[in-house]
């Protein structure tokens, strides 16, 4: 899951050199609009539907990966 999110961040925002603990706002400079777009792209790729409250609460890459795993997101490459 982590690799998928890293791939989206690189593809969509050109962001590299991240860690699971990277904070979306503080470390990656993403705002709520970017997170909303990220959720949309992740849903398309991973075949899940994320709850708005849940993805907005995610502070780090790890948070969003954990949440996606609870949704049973597709993890195949």
């Amino acid at each position: 899951m982590y690799e998928k999110i890293v791939e989206i961040l690189k593809d969509k925002y050109g962001i590299e050199n991240v860690t699971p603990e990277s904070n979306f706002k503080k470390d990656l400079g993403l705002n709520s609009f970017d997170l909303m777009e990220l959720a949309f792209v992740a849903e398309e790729i991973l075949g899940v539907e994320m709850k708005e409250d849940a993805y907005r609460k995610a502070e780090t890459i790890k948070d969003i990966c954990d949440y996606l795993e609870t949704l049973g997101a597709r993890n195949e490459n």
Binding site: M36, E37, A39, F40, E43, M50, E52
Partner: peptide, 8 residues
């Protein structure tokens, strides 16, 4: 209805 679908 959901902001994540704004652009769509």
């Amino acid at each position: 209805l959901k902001t994540k679908y704004l652009l769509r």
